[in-house]
């Protein structure tokens, strides 16, 4: 339905109409798109999402560009000449927050995301979330279990899953180990033990949970391996008594300090 516009007759010069709300939308969506592209190209998206779902975020970045283009087109048309009665509230859309505040919030968070670089979770988070050798019921329970062929190819989570299925630590004694993880110093462990841990991700960083294996050092040299430093540990499996129970531990032959991997999670 076209309704006649009641505009003051001013034929000499048309006043330029700035659609501020649309401009705010363009800025907000544009910043969101830029933020998603930034995480994509810097590889930081791997800190936030499981690799299976990064394509969703990449597509969203493109879709937002499309929305920006559409809104720009609308602004262009509006500025060229005022449009007839738009159906702003014709669908009875009820909002919780004023639109300008919503846009400002979107824009603010996107700018924050453009400035801030996400960090991989560290040992403090691991200790807060509770590291377990046994996976609790709320965690991913694979219905199919494939035993990794060679012991030295197993990652930390592979070992943990294995122990979860067959918990007797002596069964693995003497098997070669080659794992990568970051260092945790659990408080109640004696000084010759450190833990090498990894976070496991199933969907996004909100659900990461830590898993870890103890390393039995030859001397009380815990301080040689600072908390949160990354290690590559090779050696063989043995069983040790820690926290009052027998469990799997690594007897290392070589411990190598490495840089934080590009993708710190395991799956």
């Amino acid at each position: 339905m076209r309704s006649p516009q009641l505009t003051p007759a001013k034929p000499t010069k048309r006043r330029l109409y700035w659609p501020w709300r649309d401009i705010l939308d363009v800025l907000a969506f544009g910043a969101w798109s830029a933020m998603l592209f930034r995480y994509w190209f810097s590889g930081k998206i791997l800190l936030l999402l499981h690799p299976n779902y990064t394509w969703l975020s990449h597509s969203a970045a493109f879709a937002l560009v499309g929305l920006v283009a559409l809104t720009l087109f609308k602004i262009f048309r509006q500025m060229a000449g005022p449009q007839s009665g738009q159906t702003k509230d014709m669908l009875g859309h009820v909002t919780l927050m004023p639109p300008n505040i919503s846009s400002a919030l979107l824009l603010g968070v996107a700018i924050f995301g453009l400035i801030y670089t996400p960090r991989a979770f560290a040992s403090q988070t691991a200790l807060q979330r509770g590291i377990s050798e046994t996976l609790s019921l709320t965690r991913s329970q694979p219905q199919r279990f494939v035993r990794a062929a060679a012991p030295e190819e197993r990652t930390i989570i592979d070992w943990i899953r294995l122990v979860n299925v067959y918990p007797e630590p002596d069964a693995y004694a003497g098997e070669p180990v080659d794992v990568v993880g970051f260092v945790i110093h659990p408080e109640n462990w004696p000084d010759e033990y450190v833990m090498v841990a990894r976070f496991v991700i199933t969907c996004c960083a909100a659900d990461v949970y830590p898993v870890g294996l103890p390393i039995k050092l030859s001397a009380q040299e815990r301080s040689d391996y600072p908390v949160d430093s990354w290690l590559r540990v090779t050696g063989e499996m043995t069983s040790e008594t820690l926290d009052g129970r027998r469990q799997l531990a690594i007897a290392p032959t070589n411990i190598q300090q490495i840089a934080e991997p590009k993708n710190p999670y395991e799956y």
């Binding site: 998603l36 800190l47 999402l49 975020s57 969203a60 960090r119 960083a205």
Partner: peptide, 13 residues
Amino acid sequence: FTLFLSLLVEAVP
């Protein structure tokens, strides 16, 4: 902050 951004980036698509 990382948690916050992760939730957003996963949910926005």
